[in-house]
Design a protein around this nucleic acid. Structure first.
Lengths: 204, 204
DNA sequence: GTCTATAACGTGATAGAC
DNA sequence: GTCTATCACGTTATAGAC
């Protein structure tokens, strides 16, 4: 079936490694983990682990990619049709709340995102694309919410999406420093801020 | 004069080193800099530099402390009396715009703040205190602005201050990844969002 | 495909001369 | 106070056996 006999198995093993790594980091945390540590945790030697990935950094980006995929299918909004703002935020708030259970993954994500500032870093493109996709999804939802009068039209939807991304990333930074910080609460409060004072259909 | 002959000179040299380091990082950038690199740039040997600081991490926190002090006196709002929101934001927006000229310092700050998630990290307390002070200043200003009707009263001033901090930190993260991002614009836009649609003294 | 062993390097920190 | 020299360690990556 596959082009070469061992190719499919190699891919499957790679996938298995990534999910195992994800699990280990989620449960045991991430303390600037080295390839060796991760290899031990996954049940391989360091060289054995690097057999499947070109470098340490490539390995870690793949872990983050796997995580996005897992989270989006587990907690995210359905992607087929472009969802409305409520559905979209509900999905992301589930992800955000889940993140509070896996500090190691958040730490890995944050650490990588600062390292990836260098354009030559293997994760650079990943973070750019991820951010753009996030903003595009929300910009569309905000635009529709604005025409419905559910979100302030004073500021362009694109700008609101960018601010939302900032709030999320920044709040996560604060949470890492002080675990009593509630990221979902901060993001939720910000979203509440966007509802115009006088809705289209007044009640009072 | 001083208690011990060499004490005063030691402190002065320390100060001089910190300002020189600040300058070097601002101009040449920060690429996960080692003590050795910084020592070279400052004109000392690695051991010579560490003579003034207990460890690498202590050195870098002191650099950040020095930076805060320099920035606040150069661009910040006067601290004697608690400033109003406009003065406070104007000062911080100057700092934010200045940051765009010194990416190395922003990188150092961000990198340290993720490393400092560990409570045993020497910079941990620094970041907690800095964040608390930032929020306290803005919470007071927001409270006053709320009673004046200049800022939405729908959300507590404390929460707004926390969101503002998130916006700043998060936008900076995005800027590091993509230098075309305008941090001051994002923060400014967020602040504009907070002005109630219908002010106390209506014009239209 | 996975291992052991090791290369090649950079790091922070310290000892000791001057 | 500042240097040179070096220690002790951890890192990623690779070579080569099996």
């Amino acid at each position: 079936m596959a082009r070469r006999g061992s190719y499919a198995k190699g891919v499957a093993k790679r996938e298995e490694i990534l999910h195992a790594a994800l699990d280990v980091i989620a449960r045991q945390g991430f303390h600037g983990a080295s390839v060796r540590e991760l290899a031990d945790a996954v049940g391989l030697s360091q060289a054995g682990l690097l057999h499947y990935f070109d470098s340490k950094e490539e390995l870690f980006v793949e872990i983050l990619r796997t995580r996005d995929q897992v989270d989006l299918t587990a907690f995210g909004a359905p992607q087929e049709t472009s969802p409305d703002l409520e559905t979209l935020t509900a999905g992301y708030l589930r992800i955000i709340r889940h993140n509070a259970e896996v500090p190691g993954l958040v730490q890995l994500f944050t650490q990588m995102s600062t390292d990836a500032a260098d354009p030559r870093h293997p994760a650079h493109a990943y973070f750019l694309e991820r951010g753009a996709a996030f903003r595009a999804g929300f910009a569309a939802a905000f635009t529709r919410a604005q025409t419905a009068g559910a979100v302030t039209a004073r500021v362009p939807a694109q700008a609101i999406a960018r601010i939302l991304q900032s709030v999320w990333d920044g709040a996560q930074l604060q949470w890492l420093l002080d675990p009593t910080v509630d990221v979902a609460d901060i993001v939720g409060t910000f979203l509440a801020t966007l509802v115009p004072a006088t809705p289209k259909s007044p009640r009072a």
